[in-house]
C-alpha cells in the first residue's frame, strides 16, 4: 500500500485540522475554490467576480507529513463548503487528526479524520474534484506600492465591525500627514469618519509615499472580517492603481503560521 501511496499526486497529514478548518471558513464566500498543492504548502483560492480574490495558504511545516509529486501540477476545483464541513465533522469542540489523499488527476480528494478523545470512531470523505479554471492574476508588475501599514488584527476587526452596514462605499484616505489613516462611510444623510494616526497602538508600522484617496465596496472589505477574527496581524498594501492587498497572519499555539490573503479591486471614479 505504501508504494502505491508514493505514486499519489498528493498526500498530507496533520495532528489537528481545526485551524485549517477555520481558515477555510474565513475565505468561504463562494461555493468553489481552486485547491493547489505546491511544494511549499497548500493554497486554496476563492474569487468573487473580478473584484475580490482571497487565498488561504498553509505552509508545509504545519503538516506532520506533506508530500507532493514534483513532476505534476496538483491543481483542481473543489467545493469549499463541503470541504470545510467535512473537516468539522466531529464538531469544533474536538481536535481530530487529518489525512488527505489525492491519487491523480480527476480523483476525488479523500479525507480521513479521527477525533483525539474518542477512539472507536473515524470518518472518511470522498469529495469530487473538477478541472480548475485559471486563477486571475490581479497583481500588476508595472505598479508601485504607495503605502504599507501593519495593523493589529483584533483592533482592526473592531473598527470594521463598527462601520454602518447599510453604506455601500468605504473611502480610505492614506497620507503621510496627520491623521494618517482615515476610513469614511456615507449614509443616507450622515457621514462617519474614523481617524487612526500612525502613533496609535493599533498601528505597528506605517509607510506612505504620498496621499491617496481610494474607494472600495464596503461589502468587499467586510469579506475579510472572518479571517481577521482568527488572525493576529494584518499587512495592508496599497498599489498606485488602487489595488488593495491585505495579508493576514494566523499564529497557532505551536508557533506555526498560516496565512490568508485578500486582493480587493477599487471602485474607479467615473
Amino acid at each position: 500500500m505504501d508504494d502505491e501511496m508514493s505514486e499519489y499526486y498528493f498526500t498530507a497529514s496533520m495532528d489537528s485540522g481545526k485551524t485549517l478548518c477555520s481558515l477555510l471558513k474565513a475565505i468561504q464566500f463562494q461555493e468553489f475554490a481552486v485547491f493547489c498543492a505546491l511544494a511549499e504548502g497548500l493554497k486554496l483560492t476563492v474569487e468573487e467576480g473580478k473584484c475580490v480574490q482571497a487565498s488561504a495558504y498553509v505552509p508545509a511545516d504545519n503538516f506532520t507529513e506533506y508530500h507532493v509529486r514534483s513532476d505534476v501540477d496538483v491543481m483542481f476545483k473543489i467545493n469549499i463548503s463541503v470541504l470545510a464541513e467535512c473537516l468539522n465533522i466531529f464538531g469544533s469542540g474536538e481536535e481530530s487528526s487529518l489525512k488527505m489523499y489525492y491519487r491523480c488527476e480527476g480523483s476525488p480528494l479523500i479525507l480521513v479524520l479521527q477525533p483525539q478523545s474518542v477512539h472507536n470512531v473515524m470518518t472518511d470523505c470522498e469529495i469530487s474534484t473538477q478541472t480548475a479554471d485559471s486563477v486571475l492574476e490581479l497583481r500588476d508588475e508595472d505598479t508601485s506600492e504607495v503605502a504599507k501599514l501593519v495593523l493589529k488584527a483584533p483592533a482592526f476587526l473592531g473598527l470594521l465591525a463598527d462601520l454602518e452596514r447599510s453604506c455601500d462605499i468605504m473611502e480610505l484616505k492614506l497620507s503621510p500627514e496627520h491623521p494618517n489613516i482615515s476610513i469614511i462611510t456615507y449614509g443616507m444623510q450622515d457621514r462617519s469618519c474614523i481617524d487612526m494616526p500612525k502613533s496609535s497602538e493599533m498601528v505597528q508600522s506605517f509607510n506612505c509615499t504620498h496621499a491617496v484617496t481610494l474607494k472600495y465596496q464596503l461589502h468587499h472589505i467586510r469579506l475579510i472580517m472572518k479571517a481577521l477574527a482568527v488572525s493576529t496581524k494584518v499587512v495592508v498594501r496599497c498599489s498606485s492603481n488602487g489595488l488593495l492587498l491585505l495579508q493576514l497572519k494566523l499564529e497557532k499555539e505551536d508557533q506555526r503560521q498560516m496565512f490568508s490573503e485578500f486582493y480587493i479591486v477599487p471602485l474607479l471614479d467615473d
Binding site: 467535512c86 470512531v121 470522498e126 469529495i127
Partner: peptide
C-alpha cells in the same frame, strides 16, 4: 451526494 460521500464509522458497540 453528486459530489461527495461522507461515512462516519463507529465500532466496538
Amino acid at each position: 451526494t453528486d459530489t461527495s460521500k461522507v461515512s462516519t464509522r463507529f465500532k466496538d458497540l
